[in-house]
Design a protein around this nucleic acid. Structure first.
Lengths: 125, 125
DNA sequence: CCATCGCATAGACAGATGTCAATATAGACG
DNA sequence: CGTCTATATTGACATCTGTCTATGCGATGG
């Protein structure tokens, strides 16, 4: 499999890495890069998958733990996991019969920092 | 803009309701709700729009300030602004001939908190 | 009152996306 | 080897999305 791939992070300009996007305008390339990650988060099933994986005991979960809670088919879950993997939000590894997934906290942290709002003064009017 | 951080965060219910999604599994309804906001963030043009608006002087921007930096047509910008508005990420108001947009920091803060990773300690495995 | 400017809406269209059933693959276990 | 279990891949399909051109609508100014 291809769980060794580390897609992004660090290749783009430094500003996109940590600075809140409400401070200075996002560059075009950084926006394209970030949009891919947010797109991976833009589906309810994927959000719940990510949440399930991250909050699972040991910080990782077998796929067999992930198919139960959803109304969609197993191939659909597999597809969503692939999307999360290709977005760089999770990694996976096969151990015997099962495949385990875990989140990459640094990537979530990067997105979190990006959305941080400095308690703006521009508020309601 | 002098008083930034002070006791009463203006977010009230919205912020209190959402602990990091890596702590406990996201509910089905919450996931649907949040996915809508992330979907609004899942386009490079919208990300840059949001960033432009937030980082603009005074925390707000006229549409006429927003059409220039992009390669897409004015109706497309208008469409993206509508998406951001319907997702609850920005608000708008007409003043004379112009329409001004500003971000809702509490909503961004909610998303940011949701993605916060707990110390990211273990990290790569 | 009419022309003009700023922005939004409507309609059309190609391409992306979420889903499923069917099938393939990879390891475990007789 | 054959079979079973756990995941992934394929292909099909309806729906959603981003974009454009054309047009509408409110406000301004002669």
């Amino acid at each position: 499999m291809s769980n060794l791939q580390l897609p992004v992070l660090g290749q783009d300009d430094a500003a996109a890495c940590c600075s809140p996007m409400v401070r200075e305008p996002l560059g075009e390339d950084a926006a394209v890069d970030l949009a891919k990650m947010f797109k991976a988060l833009s589906d309810p099933v994927r959000l719940r998958l990510l949440s399930l994986i991250a909050s699972h005991e040991g910080g990782e979960a077998c796929v067999c733990d992930l198919t139960g809670p959803f109304d969609v088919s197993q191939p659909t879950i597999s597809h969503h996991l692939k999307v999360l993997r290709e977005a760089g939000l999770v990694c996976s590894e096969r151990r015997g019969t099962w495949v385990y997934y875990w989140v990459l906290p640094a990537v979530l942290a990067r997105l979190s920092a990006l959305l941080e709002a400095p308690a703006a003064a521009g508020g309601a009017r």
